[in-house]
């Protein structure tokens, strides 16, 4: 939080400019030389469909100069599986509660498995409504929902963009090799989405 101590007032709004500054022209020449030099430096543009930004999985992720790094990107959601290939979500509604855009809709039901009480009978995320803030990810007590690095999220219809449980699990199956953002685990709930996790076979009847 910003306290009063952090505020520095530069008490010099009407500082007298030097003669060259007031004469503008040397300053303008300086500016023009900057832009001219820029014209001959290397481009940073990524030619998107041919080139893609990929997450940087090793090294210092906080390095601000890693320009082609997608590691801090929050893209499409995935619904993790536990080691048995079942959906890891326990339908606690924490993500739905935390979601500021109200884009998550869960129908809870009694789970068919003896070691769990609740599971999501339905789990829909409206990706068009989502603001990709990552609050669901933070709220999840079992690290079941995560935002992947996938950023090219497109669809032809609105319905297509409402991701149901099956689709979200598919996203996990495709991206399960990567653990996004390496958040500190809150619960120590082992088994989902770890980098050494083997891709679980999708077990259709267990969705």
């Amino acid at each position: 939080m910003i306290t009063e101590d952090d505020i520095i007032i530069v008490d010099d709004m009407r500082r007298d400019m030097s003669l060259t500054e007031r004469f503008y022209l040397p300053q303008i020449a300086q500016g023009l030389s900057v832009t001219l030099r820029r014209m001959f430096t290397k481009r940073v543009t990524l030619q998107y469909p041919e080139m893609r930004r990929e997450p940087k999985l090793e090294g210092d992720l906080t390095d601000p100069h890693s320009q082609l790094n997608a590691s801090r990107y929050r893209g499409v959601h995935r619904l993790n599986r536990d080691p048995d290939g079942r959906v890891a979500c326990v339908a606690c509604f924490m993500c739905e509660t935390a979601c500021p855009a109200h884009c998550i809709h869960i129908d809870a039901a009694e789970s068919p498995w003896p070691d769990r009480e609740k599971y999501p009978a339905k789990f829909d995320i409206d990706e068009l409504r989502c603001i990709y803030c990552g609050m669901c990810e933070e709220a999840c007590p079992v690290d079941a929902i995560e935002l992947t690095y996938e950023y090219d999220l497109v669809g032809n219809t609105r319905n297509e963009m409402i991701f149901d449980k099956g689709k979200l699990l598919e996203v996990f199956d495709e991206t399960c090799q990567i653990k996004p953002r390496r958040n500190p685990r809150i619960t120590g709930y082992a088994g989902t989405g770890s980098p050494d996790h083997q891709p679980a076979r999708p077990t259709g009847e267990q969705h």
């Binding site: 339908a91 606690c92 509604f93 739905e96 509660t97 809870a108 009694e110 609740k118």
Partner: peptide, 9 residues
């Protein structure tokens, strides 16, 4: 009411 809603909603 089991699993129908979270009470804060």
């Amino acid at each position: 009411f089991l699993f129908k809603q979270r009470v804060w909603f």
